[in-house]
Design a protein around this nucleic acid. Structure first.
Length: 773
DNA sequence: ATTCGCAAAGTTTTT
DNA sequence: CTTTGCGAAT
């Protein structure tokens, strides 16, 4: 009976797993069992499909699901993978399938004591960590450095990502920030340990150290997790790399999937070298390239490819597709962001009204969140339903964090950050002075703040009145702690009432307070759902871990029929039939902070690559001539990346009507797009859409006979490498290099159509296109 | 101890 | 234009 059903299942599995829809390359990855495997998967190449099928295949070949670990970076990716594995295998629940951080968190709970943590350690989010750091700075008496806690935190984070422990930290040469960090990092780490807390980076750091310093344990775990799969390998940092290697020594069955061209988290410590180096790390590796794209049209894919080949630090990859040619990619220039947003909204409305598309078919991407505003406004005005994907909204709200802090303190009484947060929230009249006494007392006796608070009455410097108030607070926490095992919703309700938090909000006629109350209601609902999912009691810690490791980026709903607005970073891993990519302008994409560093420019280029390759059928890139940003009106310069796109593949358009360009202004985005559009028209004999007849007559073809630089005299100082320039004869280009002294300053220019040429700057009609006002 | 007001700063953010 | 944090005033 059992055998029969097993063999039936086996047949079913066989047919679904190795069905004929797999290509040869995909199949070779799926059927790979032992030994290292590297899947270099281009965008839309069916990577997830391959990974899930391989998991199924492994079990079908007799590997126990318990020995398989599949790691992703996002919950969304983990959920999707789980979903898809479940449709292939029956025992899907037994796999270790989670995000990297969650996997580490579980491991760490098992072995917490080995790294000096309590079993009930708290996971701090970025905000909590910042508070811990600030508290540490205060205790150390170096609160008035030139560096912000944020800067310090990010340097500590960088160190942790690179597996540099507190006692081994050395300031990178000449970095003034480093000296401060060298001093504060050990104290901060000590603070975390004594509070029995970890920050996000610690989850990785501790596990990596654990594996490094306990060879026996490492061996055990290597054995336990025989088959490790890691998704988005290009985004791993050094700590993650170390963990993966430690788990793949005796059983080097590490399967990594990734795409170096989609590495966009370098600024968070991700090291693209990890994937580029994989073949050296595991010489016996089997490399599978998935280069066929099943997502995008040919024309979209060509544009993506032409862009990404400009990256120098890159493995060549051939992208191709059997999909139809599709419409040309559009590049439109608008007068300002208002018009850009309105045009997009209008277009979406038209498409929906005509029945060609649904709202959910549209994705709108931008480089920074601040750009979403105008879009939202326009979409609302046009009645387009939309959803805005923005990480960490709900759980970062003050009131939510307040309530959570109570729960954290109940779960882990050593948690000083939670103590600090709750002590005087709501207002209990406990002030700075009292707090200082408590802090000093806990330092002197090596005990937690809550422990100190218990003996507040005995501490001389604390006034009677204050001591009573502190005692009241301790009593509240103690009372709540007795209910720690109660269902979450109940516990949370008790927190609300006993702490006086509810009262402090309920009796307010302040609208904001009422909203806060509503948010807390939502949290209670969440708790109720959680209770339902975890009928066994004592799930407080699980809940806390859940909300620490789940951002609410997951509130993006695939199901609902709404257009989606998000940053380019958030768009990774998703796809939309129609993609709008706005504000392809210098300073925004690439972002101005990336300008100096060529590596960062390459990352920005990859970011655009990721955006482009999200599009299935249509891609519309846009710029605005003028953009109001931070309250300032600025003329824009089109992104240097636009120069790298294949001109003859793009449909250029300029939305501007009559009389917009008065000739007095510096040449700007509008002028350029118009000119390029005109040039394109001349080349193809086809008028670009959206361009008025009047407009066509006005544009100045760059490659035309009339010089356009006669009135410009520009000193050589105003040129720099990477700058877009125009030449009356050769058209648009980009400065590839500069050399020579002022008088003989020479620029090497890479022209879009005319190749590479050199010029003496003060003799040539070469000029910058557009300039900041 | 709390509150109010002004100054300064302001990417991206899987966890 | 925002938001956020710190410092002075009540």
């Amino acid at each position: 009976m059992v055998a029969a059903s097993a063999s039936i299942r086996r047949i079913l599995v066989m047919t679904t797993i190795l069905d004929s829809t797999l290509t040869a390359a995909q199949r070779s990855a799926v059927e790979h069992i032992d030994g290292p495997l590297l899947i270099l998967a281009g965008p839309g190449s069916g990577k997830t499909r391959v990974v899930t099928h391989r998991i199924a295949y492994l079990t079908q070949q007799g590997v126990s699901p318990r020995q398989i670990v599949a790691l992703t970076f996002t919950n969304k990716a983990a959920d999707e993978m789980r979903h898809r594995v479940e449709s292939l295998v029956t025992r899907a629940g037994e796999f270790h399938l989670s995000t990297f951080h969650r996997f580490c968190s579980r491991l760490l709970r098992r072995y917490a004591s080995l790294v000096g943590l309590g079993e009930h350690f708290t996971i701090y989010d970025t905000d909590d960590s910042a508070r811990a750091l600030r508290h540490t700075l205060e205790k150390a008496g170096i609160s008035n450095t030139t560096f912000s806690p944020r800067q310090i935190a990010s340097e500590i984070s960088r160190a942790k990502n690179n597996l540099v422990e507190a006692d081994r930290y050395e300031p990178p040469n000449g970095l003034p920030l480093g000296t401060v960090v060298a001093e504060i990092y050990p104290l901060y780490q000590q603070q975390l340990l004594s509070a029995s807390a970890v920050d996000f980076d610690d989850l990785l750091l501790h596990v990596a150290v654990l594996l490094r310093e306990n060879p026996e344990l490492r061996k055990t775990l290597d054995e336990e997790f025989k088959y490790v799969l890691i998704d988005e390998y290009q985004d791993t940092n050094f700590a993650q790399y170390a963990i993966l290697r430690a788990l793949s020594q005796d059983h080097p069955n590490l399967a990594a999937t990734g795409d170096p061209d989609q590495s966009i988290f370098g600024w968070r410590g991700a090291n693209i070298e990890n994937i580029l180096r994989f073949e050296e790390d595991f010489p016996a590796v089997r490399v599978v390239r998935l280069e066929q794209n099943y997502r995008s049209t040919k024309s979209i894919l060509r544009v993506a490819d032409k862009l990404i080949v400009h990256n120098l630090n890159r493995k060549h990859k051939e992208l191709f597709t059997d999909n139809p040619e599709g419409n040309p990619v559009e590049l439109t220039c608008y007068v300002d962001q208002r018009e850009e947003a309105n045009a997009i909204a209008r277009h979406i409305v038209e498409e929906i009204d005509s029945g060609r598309r649904r709202a959910q078919d549209f994705g709108i991407f931008y480089r920074i969140n601040a750009l979403s505003r105008t879009l939202e406004l326009a979409l609302r005005e046009h009645g387009v339903p939309y959803q805005l994907v923005r990480g960490l909204e709900f759980f970062q709200r003050k009131e939510i964090k307040d309530i959570i802090a109570y729960l954290q303190l109940i779960n882990n009484p050593s948690d000083d950050v939670a103590f600090l947060r709750t002590l005087n929230t709501p207002r209990r009249g406990i002030g700075k002075k009292t707090l200082q006494c408590l802090t000093r007392h806990s330092e002197e006796h090596g005990i937690s703040l809550l422990e100190s608070a218990r003996s507040a009455g005995m501490i001389g410097q604390i006034a009677k009145r204050s001591a009573v108030r502190v005692a009241t607070f301790v009593a509240i926490i103690d009372e709540l702690s007795e209910k720690a095992a109660a269902p979450l919703e109940e516990l949370m309700g008790l927190v609300m009432s006993n702490s006086g938090y509810h009262e402090s909000l309920a009796h307010s006629d302040n609208e904001e307070d009422l909203e806060r109350l509503a948010n807390i209601e939502e949290l209670l609902t969440l708790a109720r759902e959680f209770d339902a999912q975890h009928p066994e009691a004592a799930c407080l810690e699980v809940f806390l871990e859940e909300i620490a490791l789940v951002g609410d980026t997951d509130d993006w709903e695939e199901e609902t029929d709404r257009a989606t607005l998000m940053t380019l970073h958030a768009a990774k891993g998703l796809e939309f039939p129609v993609v709008f990519l706005i504000a392809a302008e210098e300073g925004l994409l690439p972002h101005e902070r990336s300008r100096e560093d060529p590596d960062q420019i390459e990352e920005e280029r990859r970011l655009l690559f990721v955006g482009i390759t999200r599009a299935q059928q249509e891609l519309k890139i846009s710029i605005a001539r003028r953009r109001d940003f931070r309250g300032q009106r600025r003329l824009t310069i089109p992104s240097q990346f636009l120069m790298e796109l294949p001109r003859d593949e793009l449909r250029m358009a300029d939305s501007e009507g009559l009389g917009g360009y008065d000739g007095d202004e510096e040449p700007d985005a509008g002028a350029i797009a118009r000119k390029v559009a005109k040039r394109h028209e001349a080349a193809s004999g086809e008028a670009p859409p959206l361009t008025t007849a009047a407009e066509l007559g006005k544009g100045q073809p760059i490659g035309g006979s009339r010089p356009i630089a006669e009135t410009f005299s520009i000193d050589s100082e105003s040129f720099h490498v990477g700058m877009p320039v125009a030449h009356p004869k050769y058209g648009l280009g980009k400065i590839a290099a500069l050399s020579g002294p002022a008088q003989r300053r020479t620029a090497t220019v890479n022209f879009v159509t005319a190749g590479v040429r050199k010029f003496r700057l003060h003799e040539s009609p070469l000029r910058p296109v557009g300039r900041k006002p």
